[in-house]
Amino acid sequence: MKLDQTQRHILTLLQKDSTLSTQALADKVGMSVSPCWRRVKEMEDAGVIRGYVALLDRTKVGLGTCVWVRVKLKQHSVEVLDRFEQVVKGCDQVVECYELLGETDCLLKLYLPGLEALSAFMHDFLLKIPEIDVTHSSVALREIKNETALPL
């Protein structure tokens, strides 16, 4: 879907505050309510807007440790990757997972209460996945920037 300037403006506003009423959104964009609602609905139907969420402060809910885990798989086949993906998709601690090109096959991002939880995650979950050959973990010392809004 090719986005026009009005749609981009609507999306920018919704990324900052998805609780805006259609009236408030229309006022900020400079259009009447019905056309504004139609634009939003069109973007929802097209999958541009996937949903609406509440963004939490992870440290205030006890998830102060951010860990990146690089995973190298034993084999490179569709079956191995599919099995690995299914296991990872079912793990709540993994908030992001990417398949990569290069020496690392997958990159996992975790939010955990602390290093003890990382140890438990590794021993009780990750290292029990038979498709994994090698893992390397990096613990973030501090968060410098973490944005959820896409640059439109």
Rank of each mutant, 00 (worst) to 15 (best):
L110P: 07
L112V: 04
I49R: 02
M31F: 09
L25Y: 09
S119A: 15
C106L: 12
Q93T: 13
P35A: 01
A149Q: 09
C36R: 02
K89R: 15
M122F: 05
G51D: 03
R50A: 14
Y52C: 01
K128S: 09
D45R: 10
K74S: 09
V87S: 06
I132K: 07
L56F: 12
V94H: 13
T104R: 12
H9S: 08
I132D: 07
V33G: 06
V69Y: 06
L55G: 02
V95N: 03
L3E: 10
V33T: 13
F125H: 14
K28S: 14
A54L: 06
H123A: 11
L100M: 15
W68G: 08
R39P: 00
E147H: 07
E96Y: 11
M1L: 12
D124Y: 04
I10P: 08
L100I: 10
T104P: 01
S137F: 05
L150R: 09
A149I: 02
K2H: 12
V78Y: 10
C36E: 02
L150P: 00
G102T: 08
D45G: 03
E131I: 03
L3N: 11
M43D: 01
I10Q: 09
S77A: 03
G30P: 04
Q86P: 00
L100D: 12
K109P: 03
L73G: 01
S138R: 07
Q86S: 14
G47V: 06
M122K: 14
G62Y: 01
D57M: 01
L110M: 09
K145C: 00
V88A: 11
G51I: 04
R8S: 07
T59S: 07
L110W: 05
D17E: 09
M31W: 02
L13Y: 12
Q86I: 08
Q5C: 02
L13S: 10
E96N: 11
V53D: 08
Q93N: 11
L55Q: 08
T6D: 11
Q23I: 14
L101C: 08
E116F: 03
Q86V: 10
T6W: 06
G30R: 03
C97D: 05
D57G: 01
L108H: 09
V67S: 03
P35Q: 00
L20M: 12
Q7F: 00
F121I: 02
T22P: 00
T65N: 03
K109W: 04
V95H: 04
C97T: 12
H9P: 02
V48K: 10
A117T: 06
L152S: 08
E44N: 01
K2D: 12
M43L: 15
V134I: 12
E103L: 08
K72T: 13
V88P: 05
L118I: 03
E99H: 07
F84L: 04
L112P: 06
L100A: 14
E147F: 05
E42L: 15
K72E: 14
K28W: 04
E85P: 00
R83E: 10
Q15A: 13
T6Y: 09
L63P: 00
D27Y: 04
G30I: 01
D124N: 14
E131M: 03
D105E: 04
L13D: 12
S138M: 13
L14W: 07
